[in-house]
Amino acid sequence: MNQKINQHIAYLMKEKGVNLIISQAKDSNGFVIPHFILSENDIISSVIAINEMRNFFAYLNKQEIKSFKSIGIVCNYFGVKTFFQLKFENQLKDLELFLLIPTDDDFIEITSEKQAEDYLSGLKQSTILVDEELENVKKMSMEERWNYWMKTLELCTKCYACRAACPMCYCSSCTTECNIPQWIPVPASLHGIFEWHVMRAMHLAGRCTECDECVKVCPANIPLNILNKGLHNKISEAFSSDDSSIKYALNFFQPDEKVDFIK
């Protein structure tokens, strides 16, 4: 990370009692990886473009990491969005977090929900996400879509890396692990895979931050972002034009809502 951030990290560790910084680095193969700073000796300078950066908030779901209590985390826009959503869902209660967002040769520090909200509304973009793959899928006929997904999903091995890497998948016991009744068939057959993806998409609907971490970690290249973005768009269209007021769309309702397909 740049000079200024590194100086600030050293300051946080010395003066603020921060004992872990989850930073980002590139390994020798060019992969962006988490870089854990436990002491000032671990600080390295590395250059990662802001849009190449990953969202490592999933680490905060690990008990071992949580126990550090006071944690700094280097992130970009999606990290802030995740922070905001997790705060709303009451997941960061016992943690003191310092978000460090690199800018050209400086950085922004965010520690509270309020700051995060200001940062996000400053960058407000259209609530409808444009995605080429999503457009393509939407253009297909029903049969084509089904065949497209069956062909794509065939490769999924149900390794659940998409779940592990998702900051919003924080349940300590997942529905996939429940076996009385067995909600999701265990074998990675098309049936089990299909149901897993329906369930994953539903459980993240209205909460997903579109960080695309799930897509980045999937060894089978499953375009999960099509589902994530599709649902995001549907929720923005159907329930509100203002995305930030939704927070968790499936937990709210408007009494005058009408749904055309319910007869």
Binding site: Y59, K62, T157, C159, A161, V217, P219
Partner: peptide
């Protein structure tokens, strides 16, 4: 071991490949 396992998210990718 605590340090080397820090990055591990507990998925099954490594075993499956």
């Amino acid at each position: 071991w605590k340090i080397v396992s820090m990055g591990c998210l507990g998925c099954g990718s490594c075993a499956f490949v």
